[in-house]
């Protein structure tokens, strides 16, 4: 099995997410990561889904997604021509002794501290999945109290847009 990033251009309609998520569940696909949000076009949303699946079943799920009336377009984004980003907020245990080490890691990973308390820091990090995972590894020894993350966001490189042909 291999990891695939699907980008769905969808109509922003009630129940849309249920239709998409339900389809994955019904056909036996596990969603690794999911990110949903508005696009540059009013009424259209973009869903980025990461799935772990073989090529043939992926083709089937893509076709099934295309059958959903509110799904306008489904594109598989391949790693080489795509920019991908994860976004995480991490609450790390710190004290006077460890704070400077944690701050050093923050600098090295080009992350940012967004909240400070006497016994913890909240750190924001953005980047490719591998970088974010590496950062977590570094922070783990200090004690990660909480971690939240967005799904992977992905967009094709260059000037082309997924919405281009749709709007004509």
């Amino acid at each position: 099995m291999s990891q695939h990033v699907l980008s769905l251009l969808v109509e922003d309609r009630p129940g849309l997410l249920t239709r998409v998520a339900g389809l994955f569940a019904r056909r036996g696909f596990n969603i690794e990561s999911l990110a949903v949000g508005a696009t540059e076009v009013e009424g259209l949303s973009r869903i980025t889904v990461v799935v772990n699946v073989d090529g043939l079943p992926l083709e089937q799920v893509t076709k099934q997604l295309n059958k959903l009336i509110n799904v306008i377009k489904v594109v598989e984004l391949d790693a080489e021509t795509t920019v991908e980003r994860d976004h995480m907020l991490i609450k790390v245990r710190t004290d006077a002794a460890t704070r400077s080490q944690v701050l050093e890691a923050v600098t090295l990973f080009r992350a940012r501290v967004i909240d400070v308390a006497s016994d913890a820091l909240i750190i924001e990090v953005t980047g490719e999945t591998a970088k974010c995972q590496a950062f977590i590894k570094v922070l783990e020894p200090f004690g990660i109290k909480e971690l939240v993350q967005s799904g992977v966001l992905a967009i094709g490189r260059g000037s082309k847009s997924i919405t281009e042909k749709v709007l004509k």
Binding site: P14, G15, T18, R19, G22, R26, K67, L68, I69
Partner: peptide
């Protein structure tokens, strides 16, 4: 009923 029939309709509207 829209939720119940989602997997068994071609489409549905509320």
């Amino acid at each position: 009923i829209v939720g119940i029939t989602m997997p068994i309709t071609k489409h549905s509207f509320l």
